[in-house]
Design a protein around this nucleic acid. Structure first.
Lengths: 119, 119
DNA sequence: GTAGTTGCAAACTTTTTGCTACCCA
DNA sequence: TGGGTAGCAAAAAGTTTGCAACTAC
């Protein structure tokens, strides 16, 4: 584990938000101005693959990253783009019941207006 | 409605598949070799916005387009990337019940192995 | 005639990758 | 001292856009 990776990992762990690579980069740059975007992406990818962090993908938006690696769901605010956790049980069984064949997994993102944005 | 738009619309309507812009472009080019990718994207965007076709977005994959505009759900084959319809009821109420606040909408893509790909 | 559309190419966004130099275990 | 990284810059993939020429009505 290099200094860079530690910085990136700490940013994710300390933040209550689910940040994008861009946001993590900006934050990391404050602590180590020489850090490169490529390094951020590379380490995010490696940590996500190793199961140390969770990559949250959703259509049309940059990936976000979550310190909570246990499977769970997320919502995104349609106005500001903020991503947060949401208490929904696993839907695999329900989906299989309706589809009638095995389901490998699924992507779900709930659209909401977050507290700040629901004017 | 220009010739180009009509060609694009017909391709979508005639195909049982949910094609990508790339695939639609390839098909359109056979009928009108001078057509440009930009024209395909522009018309897909315009028709999707007008509600004449449905844009299917999912993380990490190109958009697909569907002639069925009524809201419904889709699955994607993890092996070949083919997208098809899937009979799942609307989940808005279920989601709101769990979350406890209004839900504007949601993205759901079910991961499967399609008939051809389930070894 | 003119508003809208084409084809082309360039720009854009997000993410990945090739490369050389470097650092540390 | 050699395998894994960093930093940089270029590339990749998918999509959008600016613009001059052209179409359709």
């Amino acid at each position: 584990m290099t200094q860079q990776r530690k910085i990136i990992y700490d940013i994710i762990c300390k933040s209550p938000l689910h940040m994008t690579a861009e946001q993590i980069y900006a934050e990391a740059k404050r602590m180590r101005p020489s850090i490169a975007m490529g390094t951020v992406y590379r380490n995010l990818g490696l940590m996500a693959e190793a199961g140390e962090i969770l990559r949250i993908e959703m259509p049309g938006r940059p990936d976000h990253f979550d310190k909570t690696v246990a499977p769970h769901h997320h919502c995104v605010c349609l106005k500001c783009g903020a991503v947060s956790d949401v208490p929904i049980p696993d839907l695999t069984e329900l989906l299989e019941k309706h589809i009638g064949s095995p389901v490998t997994g699924y992507d779900l993102t709930v659209h909401v207006l977050c507290e700040n944005c629901k004017e």
